[in-house]
Design a protein around this nucleic acid. Sequence first.
RNA 1: GCGGAAGUGGUGAAAUGGCAAACACACUAGCCUUAGGAGCUAGCGCCGCAAGGCUUGCGGGUUCAAGUCCCGCCUUCCGCACCA
Length: 849
Amino acid sequence: MAEEKELRYDPAVIEPKWQERWAADPKLYAADPITSGKPKYYVLEMLPYPSGQLHMGHVRNYSIGDALARHMWMRGYNVLHPMGWDAFGLPAENAALKNNTPPRQWTLSNIAGMKRQFGRLGMGFDWATEVTTCFPDYYRWNQWFFLRMYERGLVYRKKSKVNWCPECATVLANEQVIDGRCWRHEDTIVEQRDLEQWFFRITAYAQELLEGLDKLDGWPEKVRTMQRNWIGRSEGTEVDFFLAEDAVNAQNDDGSPKVIPAGRRIRVFTTRVDTIFGATSIQLAPEHALVTEMASNDAGLAKQVSQLLEEQKKAREAGDVGAIEKHGVPTGHFAVNPYNGERIPIWVANYILADYGTGAIMSVPGHDERDFEFATKYAIPVRRVIAPANPVAEETALPFTTEDGVLVNSGEYNGLGYAEATRRLQEAAVRGGFGEPKITFRIKDWGVSRQRYWGTPIPMIHCERDGIVPVPDEQLPVILPDNVEITQTGGSPLARVPEFVNVTCPKCGGPAKRETDTMDTFVDSSWYFYRYTDAHNDKAAFDSAIANYWFPIDQYIGGVEHAILHLIYSRFWTRVMRDLGMIKNDEPAEHQFSQGMVIKDGHKMSKNRGNVVSPDDMVNRYGADATRMYALFAAPPDRDLDWQEDGVAGVSRFLGRAYRLVMRYAATARAANGAIAPEPSGLSLKLLRKLHQTIAKITQDFEGRWHFNTDVAAIMELVNEIQGADAQLAAGEVPAAVLRELLTALVLLLAPFAPYLAAELWDELGGEGAVLRAPWPPSNPNLAREDELEIPVQINGKLATLVRVPAGSAPSVIEAAALADEKIKSRTAGKTIAKVIVVPGKTVNLVVK
RNA sequence: GCGGAAGUGGUGAAAUGGCAAACACACUAGCCUUAGGAGCUAGCGCCGCAAGGCUUGCGGGUUCAAGUCCCGCCUUCCGCACCA
């Protein structure tokens, strides 16, 4: 009775036992020194925000990474597999408001809880290199980088329209606004405010960030495409139109003369300068400086412009700028085309964006869809200046928007094609001093000021005498004070802490005030993975030699939601550090993997929907191994995963079968002495063959295909096969040495996916040391090979029967076997076999008439 | 509108152009009993008593052979979207 009880798989007993042992061995998951001589492998999963609870998305993310890390350890690599906490951020302040708990305390207690969850899940992280971004020993380096970037002109301050989330009570970077809403509050419409802000000059690297994508073939195409779109490079020309002299003669509503001086310029950006002879109006964004000027003494215009602005704002709030109905107002002013002196009207239109290009366009309705729509509505002339290259073969109706044509009605440029015309027109602009070639990017500089408390203080001082003065390095870190009153009223909480604000100016020694905004938390996560390599360095952010050993990251794993946020900031930051001489790599990660979402009942898990599954609950009921293994088994890692609790129970039952199988024969296997026979046969061969096929499949899959769901399935098949021979095994039909090989390898194969069970069974089999460091089993191709194959025989492509032939049979042998088959004979009797296709080892197809 | 991914049993899914549905879940029947969220055996795409036929969103095509490649369309999801 006691013996039978031992055969029960009970993760609630096994898992805590190993947790304790692993916790007592802090070196278990530590990387070797960089002098180890082993090949290095840096596997990284995105660090979590310490919200208080791991969710299933985390469990999936870390199950993938941990399986990979464990596999690479077993393959003999020097593996770096670290973890940390993205510990600054707004939820801590919200919690403070709600529970009256200081953000620091709230965050640290969440970290403690989540670290316990990681421990229960059996994740193999080296906690000795843990990074917590809200600690001064980390964020001081944010400040240090900020100062270095300031010195290099990569940090600047400007007043501009910025995104303001009323819910967060702070500004957001462009990347953090999704369809006009806050990335953290999908229901909150982001407002525009004029504020003075600190910016990182990410645009200085726009071109390089774009070009780098072409070389990142270890990244998903989806992520690369999204980044390309975000950077939005566009090649074109900037051209100055002149305000026409006639404008001076115009009159205001009250009959007084207009005061706009003639001869001034309006700069437009266009990608189609070859169509400039077709420009029949100039369109300005409502917020264009010239519009403001014109409206300042024209009440009628001012009113209409504010209406256009309102329409733009509404469209932005609706998250559908593209659907706005085009409206415009003529300003009563005119501009002169510098190429032909033509005088065209200046309008203000709601479809022109102030923050792209120059906020002004030349409108060419003959060759642009939008301009055509607008011109038709307001009866602005439409003129053809591009004729199709082959007028007979092509549709010639306007608007004609392709580049593939020749210029007409364009004076001396008539007859030229797109490329040549563009080149000549650009040359003329440069010569005439009214324009030049220009590359425009959609990406904007990264606004990093946040009017919040729980973040890295910006290391700058405002002195009445000396203006902006950087905090000297030796005064770093600028410590974020405790005991700050958090309110939701907006404005930086730090501004209400006199001890923090009031300082002496480092330059003149006079009274000065500290910057009270803090940094965007995406700053923290832009470089944390470098800190892991040298987490306790108090002289530098990290040691270059160590970072250069580990970088680039071999495999980075995380959710696709960071495709253009974190992942683009990280690529920027890596280049900045490279240019500071700190590292050699251009890109942070060689391979990036975006896992699919975890969903339930067809929807993303959310509190609102009440479909959240708690990892703790799963671990309590089925154990960590079953929870993790299900996360890998239920879908390929890149696809969305539908969480079905019955599936977890199924995996748990499988682990029980594997456990009992190994336990049943552990003693026999352990007592085995001697090697397995060089040429096993019968049942031994059958089982060893299945084993080696399984090893080959899983080993190959880890190389990059990563279909861990089929790897788990393959292990299940292996267990089913061995289990199916239970009676013969019990009868001793298979030598103990073979049993030992089967069971040992099975445990090793399980180790990346079910670390607790593998550790337990490794122990039972008398394995030496940690299973984690045991060598990955090699696949023996001789044993994996089948000696007889079942070949499908088709008649006209449809399956007719199966024939057995020895492996490696010549096509003629296979053909003969197929033709000799009774079923084939009867089905082809009286018909002509026109052709026989034999694909050796695969199939035979008879073409029969 | 543009770009991308996907569409296969009741469910999650599998399949270098070569036997569609591996492995699981659910379900059905039976066995076992130490009654456990257990274990074991068998069945389980659709039609049909069977022989056999049919089946990978829809329609074409390429091929000896198509879930897989090509063309057109439909649906779902994701990203981008007056970007001049």
